[in-house]
Design a binder for these strands. Structure first.
Lengths: 215, 215
DNA sequence: TAGATTGTTAATCGATTAACAATC
DNA sequence: TAGATTGTTAATCGATTAACAATC
């Protein structure tokens, strides 16, 4: 693996897509797939796929294609899914419980090991086999259960406070669903998931259709 | 508005961010804001903000900054939020109900007007003031209630079928949460929301930290 | 007027697409 | 061997950053 070279964010974001589509192909009994065929299945050009993969090594066989099983393993390792990170969800409202129940995370190899909420009514409930703890116990539970990734699903006003506590507790990465910028030390990795972006961009494009049709 | 020029996707995706941060600033009583100050608040460079806004017109005052109230209105109109699109959620599982309850959509001006599920146990329930209809009635309900945007929150295997039905019913845009590529006619706008991308990219970066620290 | 800040043009950087030699 | 398909290099395209003139 050429890990001295910086890989583009766009490439990294496409890898999960490749991973998932390859697994589907595998279930269909496909053993070997060309970049052409894979590209068709996920709406990406074959050149793009070859370029993306080539930045990590030579996974294909010229004149043949890619061995599906092998490529799945390789992409999984590139993404670090084989580490089976322990994840915790903070804020067990509608969104938090949906995330706690989201089976796709488990199928990617993540382990849900802790849930937290501030509401005494919710603390003690079981979701997806995990009991909801009080946020007061966050630091100790995170250390005990060796949580690597914290998923913030609390209202925006509490997000920074939760982030601070996660950092103190020794979390490595944060996945933030609160619609607000959180500030953390540089060594902590943060990915923001902003649900209003998708819907707003739809709105933008639909409006433009209206304008165009009125020409 | 210079709508003959093609605006970059990256710019459009930042507008909702500006919009939200401006509204927060407004609540704090700020009337005028500079690109410098706004940039600090959302972690974007001031040049980026000025460039983005300038592609739609001249919204600021040189030597002064941007009038917050006015800029909010302008960005809202660029994004087409003033059209108050009618939205429907299909698939009222954990994720679907979380989306149906997500207040941020309402605050952006979207109207939740319909919910659909295939499970008779779920049909008839009320969520966020809207009753869940059977998917069998999708076409007629969508037309009756003039639904513009369909949010697909069904399992991947049913996503294409749902998309086809939405298209037949005359939907304008689709927001797809199913982890699969859906095929629709070109005139239909699709935005894919892929929750496994964020978590996988976190995993990727955390793995690289491990590798680096072992040097 | 002097200071501040926008809007725009030019320079740089990064990502995608095209082309093709290498090779299975 | 001939055909197919990768991996890589070069060319193009697009987005960000830097610089600064315009002007409030």
């Amino acid at each position: 693996m050429k890990d001295h070279i910086i890989i583009s964010k766009a490439t990294i974001d496409r890898l999960p897509l490749y991973f998932r589509t390859l697994r589907l192909s595998q279930e269909e009994g496909i053993d070997i797939i060309s970049s052409e065929e894979l590209g068709q299945r996920l709406g990406v050009t074959p050149e793009q796929i070859r370029k993306d993969l080539a930045s990590f090594g030579q996974f294909g066989k010229k004149g043949v294609g890619y061995y599906v099983r092998e490529l799945i393993r390789n992409i999984g390792e590139i993404l670090g899914l084989h580490y089976h990170w322990n994840i915790a969800v903070i804020g067990i409202g509608h969104l938090g419980s949906a995330l706690a129940n989201y089976q796709n995370f488990m199928s990617l190899g993540f382990n849900l090991v802790a849930l937290f909420d501030a509401d005494p009514e919710i603390v003690g409930k079981h979701i997806n086999g995990v009991v909801v703890e009080s946020v007061d116990r966050m630091a100790e539970v995170i250390q005990e259960r060796n949580v690597h990734i914290g998923i913030i699903a609390v209202p925006a006003v509490f997000a920074q406070e939760v982030a601070d506590n996660l950092v103190v507790a020794g979390i490595a990465g944060i996945w933030n669903f609160a619609p607000i910028k959180i500030n953390v030390p540089d060594k902590i990795r943060v990915v923001n998931e902003d649900l209003s972006v998708g819907l707003s961009s739809l709105s933008y494009h639909l409006s433009r259709n209206l304008v165009k049709n009125n020409d």
